[in-house]
Amino acid sequence: MKTDLHKKLVDLYAGRELPSELNEDLEMAAFNDAELSHDMSTLRQTVDLLKNDPGPEFTEESYQRVLMKIYARGGNIEPRAATPIHMQYQLPMQG
């Protein structure tokens, strides 16, 4: 019965959504259950791989190309103002 509950909690464990008490309880149970232990660690690794994926970079070129496409299709859009050259670097007098 307890094992069934543990199996149901594995997904929450993988997503790090379990309260610490249940987390510890599950980790203790995994000491005596190789299958549960394997399930917990591999599923958590899978979720971690996804959550740590930085994803594709939204480059300045992509930002500008999307804007151009919006313009070209008739979208009236006001992009962010470019930072003036003289504001891009801190002068010593600006601290």
Binding site: G55, P56, S62, V66, I70
Partner: peptide, 30 residues
């Protein structure tokens, strides 16, 4: 913009289509 671009890129798998879908998303909003 960035979140929609990343989402569409992940869906479509290439930058050109992702840029296109991102632009179209904001046009639909408009």
């Amino acid at each position: 913009g960035e979140r929609i671009f990343r989402f569409t890129y992940r869906f479509l798998g290439n930058r050109t289509d992702a840029e296109d879908a991102t632009a179209e998303t904001f046009l639909r909003v408009l």
